[in-house]
Amino acid sequence: MDWTKQLIRYIIVMVLQVLLFNQLQLWGVCHPYVYLLCLLMMPITLPHIADMFIGAAVGLVMDMFCNSLGIHTASCILVMFIRPYLLAAFINEKDRLNEQISVRTIGFEAFIKYAVILVLVHHLAIFMLAAWSWSHIGFVLAETVVSSTLTILLILGYNLLFDR
C-alpha cells in the first residue's frame, strides 16, 4: 500500500469521522475517534520525527473540526511518539514494517495488543485534556472505556473486512 492509498483512506475516514462518528450521541460518553486508524496503520518507513509531525498535522485538522484547538494535536503526537517502541516490543522482524501495520502483516495477537494500548492512551489523553481538571475524573474514565471499546472494534472490523 503506497502513500496515495494511505492519503485516500485518511480522507474517507475523516469524512466518516466528522459526518458520522462525531454525531453519535450515546449516553453522552461515546466519542469514538476512529481517525486514529490511519495513524495506527501507517508503515514505519519514515524517520520517527517525520511520524510525529504527521501526527501533529492529523490532530490539528481534527481539532479544527471539533473546536478543541491543541487537544487532538497533543494526543496524536503522543501516540506517534510511543508507536515504534511499542511495535519493537511486540514484533521482532524489522523488515515486516515496510508494509502497513495491520492484522494481516503483524498477526492478530500482536495487532490487538498494539491497538488497544495506543487507542486507550489516545482517548484518555483527549478526554483528560478536554476536561482540564480532576473533578470530572469518573466521567473521563467512563468516556475513555466506552469510546475506546467502540474505536477498537471499528479498527478491527476495518482490518478484517478491507485488509485481507
Partner: peptide
C-alpha cells in the same frame, strides 16, 4: 517530541 507537545499545550491554553 517534547517541543511538539509543548507547542500543542500552548495551543490548548491559548485557546
Amino acid at each position: 517530541f517534547l517541543i511538539l507537545e509543548v507547542a500543542a499545550f500552548l495551543l490548548i491554553v491559548y485557546h
